[in-house]
Amino acid sequence: MKGGRKESLEERMQRLNAELAKRRVDDNAGDAAEERAAESRKGYAVAMKLSSEFVAAVIVGALLGYLVDRFVGTAPWGMIVLLLLGFCAGVLNVMRSAGMVASPHPVDRMAGRDAEHKKNEDGA
């Protein structure tokens, strides 16, 4: 009787080990799928950020152009010029956010101003 119990116990242990190994493989596949989904969500978030920055710059340019035309009376020219400037600003913002164009560091900007200021003093 004890031999049958021992064999039964060993069979159950083997089945349990096989089932655990199967579940571990399934969990690893699930983790990989979750990781891919997280990367996809990050991509969508970046796409929404970039598109909203671009659209906002164009809308602000158009609105400012409309206001300039309305109050100054330069009817389509203010709108055309500021809409194009908004478009350019939007493209620049998107390129900066995407990392294609580096934004100037504040220290570099101050160093550039100091160099120009000294150059003007030396020349005068």
Score class of each variant (00 low, 15 high):
N28S: 10
S8Q: 09
G86D: 01
M79D: 02
A33G: 01
A38C: 08
R12C: 07
R113V: 11
S97D: 06
H105M: 05
V107L: 12
P104H: 10
V60W: 01
G61E: 00
V25N: 12
S97V: 04
A98G: 09
N93Y: 13
V91M: 07
L64P: 02
K2R: 15
M13H: 14
A33K: 05
V81W: 02
F54I: 00
A89C: 01
V81L: 07
K42Q: 08
A33H: 10
E39C: 10
L85H: 00
K118W: 09
A37Y: 10
A102R: 12
A57I: 01
G43D: 03
N17Y: 15
N17C: 13
D114C: 07
N120C: 06
G86L: 02
E11D: 13
A29P: 08
L20D: 08
M95E: 07
E53G: 03
R23S: 07
D69E: 02
D114V: 04
I80G: 06
L16P: 10
P104T: 04
M48N: 10
S103L: 11
E34I: 14
R41A: 11
V68C: 01
F54D: 01
G61C: 00
P106S: 06
E7W: 15
D26T: 08
V107A: 11
E116P: 05
P76K: 00
D108I: 07
E11H: 12
L50Y: 14
E53V: 04
V55Q: 03
V68H: 01
N28P: 11
V101K: 08
K49L: 06
R5G: 10
A75D: 04
V58C: 00
F71G: 00
A124Q: 08
R109M: 04
V91F: 09
A47K: 07
G4E: 14
G73D: 05
S97A: 11
K49M: 04
R5E: 07
K6S: 12
R15A: 09
M95D: 02
V68P: 01
E10I: 13
K118S: 02
M79L: 14
A62I: 05
P76A: 00
